[in-house]
Design a binder for these strands. Structure first.
Lengths: 146, 146
DNA sequence: TATGGACCCTGTAGCAACTACAGAGTCAAG
DNA sequence: CTTGACTCTGTAGTTGCTACAGGGTCCATA
């Protein structure tokens, strides 16, 4: 059951993460060090499960580990205003929005490259051409500094 | 046909890259080792400029270094069919499309979290709630939150 | 009791694609 | 001759893991 102590493998299964990742989170101080058994195995309780699930969910939503750290801290201060939480989420949303915009612009360029490719020889390939720098002949010849 | 020789700094300026990156590309075999001056400075010609520009443009379009390497190889085989080029570009387009889809889904989730936040106390914060795991109430209650 | 296999431990190195030094040498202007 | 901008090599850091190597532990079965 969930109330019992768990091994790291069990915790990994429950949170859909992998064992190395959990140890990594512990090493960087994102998860508290758990108790150890007589055989030096890590022993996790429900609080660890809760915390790791929070981390996983946040990661799935694309928050960086630093943002997750901040969110975890804030989640513990139950009586504070959640403005700071809101700020982190909004910051992240802005990042996501800008990535989407970048990717859409990229997609347009890629797509136009691809649709122009008649798939003849490389010499006439519109994709290679689109990637190649276009120096005017004059410049190529005469340019150069120093 | 050879313009003037350039220093690494000059090449960096012309290609809008930075000096360390150029040395890095050389180290991993993406750019050919240039000639050296008497003082052991790297000395680049127009062909390097052309090649590095191609790399930068490809990178700007989101191709991985491995993809860039493949594109460079293909670009050199002028008489081959450009099917392979097309394949790389299409593969990349598919990656971009799937990233866009992921980010849009993410955006929806983030946005719905944020719009629900009334910015009261952390205890009532919908964002924290949305990030928190939903185990059966018994557990949450029994353990409480610190 | 021995043994096999699944699990766990620590520590280190690797991935992408750079970036950031440290500590040294080079070069041209004033 | 000095100053300051530039360059050199080599190494280590970044993010967020993942993958060993070389051991130890646990437990069911023969």
């Amino acid at each position: 059951m969930t109330g019992q102590a768990m091994s790291i493998g069990e915790l990994a299964r429950q949170t859909n993460s992998n064992v190395e990742t959990i140890r990594y989170y512990e090493r960087i101080g994102l998860l508290a060090k758990p108790a150890r058994t007589a055989g030096n195995y890590r022993s996790y309780g429900p609080e660890h499960l809760r915390r790791l699930s929070f981390v996983r969910r946040s990661r799935d939503l694309g928050f960086s580990l630093d943002q997750v750290r901040a969110l975890l801290d804030l989640a513990d201060q139950r009586d504070r205003s959640c403005e700071a939480v809101d700020a982190i989420a909004k910051e992240h949303l802005a990042e996501v929005d800008s990535k989407i915009a970048d990717l859409l612009a990229l997609r347009r360029e890629l797509n136009s490259m691809i649709t122009q490719c008649g798939c003849g020889s490389v010499a006439d390939c519109r994709i290679i051409e689109a990637l190649s720098p276009r120096f005017s002949p004059a410049i190529t010849e005469e340019r150069g500094i120093r």
